[in-house]
Amino acid sequence: MASQGTKRSYEQMETDGERQNATEIRASVGKMIDGIGRFYIQMCTELKLSDYEGRLIQNSLTIERMVLSAFDERRNKYLEEHPSAGKDPKKTGGPIYKRVDRKWMRELVLYDKEEIRRIWRQANNGDDATAGLTHMMIWHSNLNDTTYQRTRALVRTGMDPRMCSLMQGSTLPRRSGAAGAAVKGVGTMVMELIRMIKRGINDRNFWRGENGRKTRSAYERMCNILKGKFQTAAQRAMMDQVRESRNPGNAEIEDLIFLARSALILRGSVAHKSCLPACVYGPAVASGYDFEKEGYSLVGIDPFKLLQNSQVYSLIRPNENPAHKSQLVWMACNSAAFEDLRVLSFIRGTKVSPRGKLSTRGVQIASNENMDAMESSTLELRSRYWAIRTRSGGNTNQQRASAGQISVQPAFSVQRNLPFDKPTIMAAFTGNTEGRTSDMRAEIIRMMEGAKPEEMSFQGRGVFELSDERAANPIVPSFDMSNEGSYFFGDNAEEYDN
C-alpha cells in the first residue's frame, strides 16, 4: 500500500510504541512475548500442572481467558453494579484439565481477579502490559475465525453469508486497541457500523446529549479505520460520505453494504499476525530463551520457528480426527482463516481442507461434555516452508469459486491468482447506482469489472525454506488448481455463540 510509510507498523501498534527502528520493534515485541511466557509459567505453578498438562491447549485457553477477564475493567465495573446470582464479580476462573488415573478430569478453578492481575503485572515488570493482553485477544479471535462461520451475524446486519472472507476479527472485544483495529476485516468494521446506525434509528437519543457526542466521535473513528483499509480513492470518498452524514440511517447502511461487497474484489488491507497460545510461549521462556534479547516478529519467520520446536497437546472428542484438529489450530496460529487453501497447503506441506470436510468441533470443551471418553493427542503445528504475512489485500483475480465463501483475504505475501467468483459478486451490483453516491458507485463498479483474471497478485513473492531466515531465496510455489480455494466452501461450520 502506498501510504505504508505514514502508518505505524503493526509491531508498533502491538507494543504501543512511538516510531521505533526494526531492532527496537523486535525487542519490544519480544518483551511482550516474554511477559506472556513468564505469566503462563507462574500460572502453571499456581495450578500445580504437570509439564504435559501445561502444554494442553484447553488449559492455555482457560488461563488466557482468566487474565483477560481480570483486566476487563468495563465488564468488571458492570458486574459490580449489576450483581447477578451466583456470579462473584471479583473472581474469575474456568475449567482446568488434569490427568488422573490414566483419565482426563475437569476441575473448575476460581481465583481472585486481583490475584491474577498481581501475577500478570509481576510477570511483566510491574506494568499492565496491555500489548500482551491484546495479543491474547487476537489469538482467540484468530481461533474463532478458523472455527466458526459468522453466517447468522452477517444475515442479521443485512449482509450476504458468502462475504465471510471479510469477517476477520469479528469476535475481537471493543477494547483491543490499535492492534485489534489493524486485524479487523472490512466486513467486521461494516458490521460494527451498521449495528451502531441501527441503534440510532431505533433509539432517538442515541446521537443526542453528552453521551451522543461520545457516540458520534466513536462512529467517526470507526469510519476512519474502515476508510484506511480501502485502497481505492472511490471507496475512500464513499467512506467520507458515510462519516460526514448528519443523521446516519438506511442510506448509510446501503452504502456500507455496497462497500463491503466491493471489497470482495477491490480488497481492503487487513493486517495478519501470528499470535500463538500462551502454552507455546511459556515452555520456550522456561527453556531459557530470551525473546527480548533475541527479538521477535509476528509477521516473519519467528512464529514458524517457534511452532517448529513446540509440543502442544489437545483434548480430542471420541469421533474427532486429531489431524483435522491440528489443521484448525495451525490455521489459527498463522492467522489464515480466509487465505486461499492452495497457498496454505503449499506452505504447510500437507493438504489443507475446507472447514466442512474437517471432523472436528471447536477447541474448547463445553462444561456439560462427558470427560470419560476424552483422549488427548499432539497437535501437528509444523510447516514445510515459511512466508511473510501481508497486510495488503493483493490485486484481484477471477477463479472458480464456491457456493460458500466467494473470495479470499490473503494472509501471506505469496504470488498467486486470487480466487473470487466474479459473476456471483457482480450480480449483486445491478441497477442500484442512484442517489448521492452514484458517481462513486459507478466508478467502483467500473474498477471491479476491469479486474483481470490473468493478473498475478504479489508478483514474484515466494515462500522460503525454514533454514532461509533472511528470506534470501524465494520459492514461487505451484498450486494444484483442481483443489478448492475457499475454506468455508459450501460450508456447515458451527455458528459462533458468545
Rank of each mutant, 00 (worst) to 15 (best):
M1G: 07
Q4V: 10
M13T: 02
E18W: 09
R19C: 10
T23Q: 14
A27H: 14
S28R: 13
G30T: 12
D34N: 09
Y40V: 07
S50Y: 03
D51I: 12
Y52I: 04
E64T: 11
A70E: 04
N76Q: 15
H82A: 04
S84Y: 00
G93E: 10
D101A: 12
Y111P: 04
D112A: 09
A123S: 14
A129H: 05
H135Y: 08
H140M: 08
H140Q: 14
H140L: 06
N142V: 06
R150T: 01
T151Y: 02
R156A: 08
G158E: 04
S165E: 02
R174H: 04
R174S: 02
R175V: 05
A179G: 11
G185N: 07
V186G: 00
T188V: 03
I194L: 13
N202S: 07
N202G: 10
F206G: 03
K214L: 09
T215E: 03
F230Y: 07
Q241R: 06
V242I: 11
E244W: 03
N250Y: 03
D255M: 06
A263V: 12
L266G: 01
A286H: 10
G288S: 09
G288P: 03
Y296S: 12
G300E: 08
P303N: 04
Q308W: 14
Q311C: 01
N319F: 07
P322Q: 11
S326P: 04
S326W: 08
L328F: 07
V329M: 15
N334A: 06
L344V: 08
I347Y: 05
R348A: 09
K357Y: 12
S359E: 00
T360G: 07
R361V: 15
V363Y: 01
A366I: 06
M371P: 06
M371A: 15
A373T: 13
S377N: 14
S377W: 05
R382A: 05
R382S: 06
S383W: 02
I388L: 08
I388A: 05
G393I: 03
N395A: 14
R400V: 02
Q409A: 15
N417K: 14
A427K: 00
F429H: 02
G431V: 10
R436E: 11
A442V: 14
I445G: 08
R446Y: 00
R446M: 10
R446L: 07
E469T: 06
I475T: 11
P477H: 03
N483C: 01
N483L: 14
S486A: 02
F489S: 06
N498L: 04
